[in-house]
C-alpha cells in the first residue's frame, strides 16, 4: 500500500521542455513513473521524451487520462499553472517550484480549495512511493519499498531519511516532501491522516524545521486523533539564530514562534520520539517497529 501516488498514477508535466523539467521527467521515467503528457502553452502537437505535448492542461487530461500534475515552471508562472491544473479537475498536484511570491500562493490555495485538488508544495522535493512511482526530485536510488511513512518540510533531509531507512532495511511506504514555503498546499496535518488510513504504514517519520507552527499543529493532531503508530521526529535549525531567515522563506524564528525547542517540546509531549541526528531517527524507528 501507499499514499498519494502508486504504479497506476498518470502524470502530466507542466514545464516538460525546460532544462530541469526535461531532466527530471527522464529521471521519473527511468524510475517507472507513467508520464503521459506534457503541457507547454504554444507547443501543443509536439512531442518530447516520447511524451505528447499539449497547449492546455484541460486538453492533456481529456486526451491522456492524466490524474496528477507535476508543476516545474518558473516562479512567476507557477501559481497560475497550479490553478490551471486544479481547474482541469486533477485530484493531485505536486509543485516543486522555488521562489513563488507568497500572495500568489495565498490566491492559488484559496482557488484550489474549491476544486478536487490536493496540492503538495510548492518549493518541495515531491513524492516517492518506492518501487512504484516518484514525482519530483527525490533521487531514484534512495527509496526501497517498506514499512515507514515519511513526511518532511526540507527536501534534502527527506532524501537523508529515506536513504537511512532504506539502508537499514525498514524501507518506506511513501515519502512526502511538503515544502519549505510559508504558504503550502499541504502541511503535516494534511498528510498524517493519509498515513493513518494506510495499513501498510507501521511508523511515521516527521522531519520539521524552525519557523511557523506546523510541527506544533502536527503534535496536536497526533494527540487528539489518537494516532496509534509510532512517530519519530527530527527538527533542523536547532542552532539557528532568531530573526535570520535560514534559506527557506518559511524557516525563520520570529518573536516567540518557530523555535526548534518549542517544536521538540510539543512533539515530545504528544508522544513522538524526537531524534538528535538522522542516524538516531533510523535507530529509533528500528526500536519502535514490531520485529
Amino acid at each position: 500500500m501507499a499514499i498519494l501516488i502508486d504504479v497506476s498514477t498518470r502524470v502530466l508535466v507542466q514545464g516538460i521542455t525546460g532544462r530541469e523539467g526535461g531532466f527530471h521527467t527522464q529521471q521519473m521515467q527511468a524510475y517507472g513513473t507513467q508520464v503521459v503528457a506534457g503541457v507547454v502553452p504554444g507547443r501543443g502537437g509536439g512531442e518530447t521524451l516520447g511524451v505528447p505535448i499539449f497547449d492546455t492542461v484541460a486538453e492533456a487530461v481529456a486526451r491522456t487520462g492524466a490524474d496528477t500534475a507535476f508543476t516545474i515552471v518558473p516562479p512567476a508562472f507557477a501559481a497560475d499553472a497550479v490553478m490551471e491544473a486544479a481547474a482541469a479537475g486533477l485530484p493531485l498536484g505536486i509543485c516543486v517550484t522555488e521562489g513563488i511570491p507568497v500572495l500568489d500562493m495565498v490566491r492559488a490555495t484559496a482557488f484550489i480549495a474549491g476544486t478536487p485538488m490536493r496540492l503538495i508544495g510548492p518549493n518541495c522535493p515531491g513524492v516517492m512511493t518506492p518501487g512504484q512511482a516518484k514525482i519530483g526530485f527525490i533521487p531514484n536510488h534512495v527509496g526501497r519499498p517498506g514499512r515507514v511513512g515519511v513526511v518532511a518540510r526540507s527536501g534534502t533531509l527527506t532524501y537523508e531519511v529515506i536513504q537511512g531507512l532504506s539502508e537499514s532495511g525498514y524501507g518506506e511506504t511513501t515519502a512526502v516532501g511538503i515544502g519549505g514555503d510559508p504558504v503550502l498546499g499541504s502541511t503535516f496535518v494534511d498528510i498524517l491522516p493519509l498515513f493513518a488510513d494506510d495499513p501498510a504504514t507501521e511508523a511515521v517519520v516527521l522531519v520539521g524545521e524552525i519557523g511557523g507552527s506546523d510541527e506544533e499543529r502536527a503534535a496536536e493532531w497526533i494527540r487528539s486523533s489518537g494516532f496509534d503508530r509510532p512517530v519519530i521526529a527530527f527538527i533542523s535549525g536547532r542552532t539557528a539564530p532568531p530573526g535570520k531567515r535560514m534559506g527557506h522563506a518559511g524557516a525563520i524564528i520570529s518573536g516567540s514562534t518557530g523555535s526548534a525547542q518549542g517544536k521538540i517540546d510539543a512533539l515530545t509531549a504528544a508522544g513522538a520520539a524526537v531524534a538528535d541526528t538522522i542516524e538516531e531517527v533510523v535507530r529509533l524507528v528500528g526500536e519502535r517497529l514490531a520485529p
Binding site: 534534502t156 522531519v207 524545521e209 534559506g247 538522522i278
Partner: peptide
Amino acid sequence: NGAGLVMN
C-alpha cells in the same frame, strides 16, 4: 544544497 540540509 537545500535549506534543511544546511541547517542540519
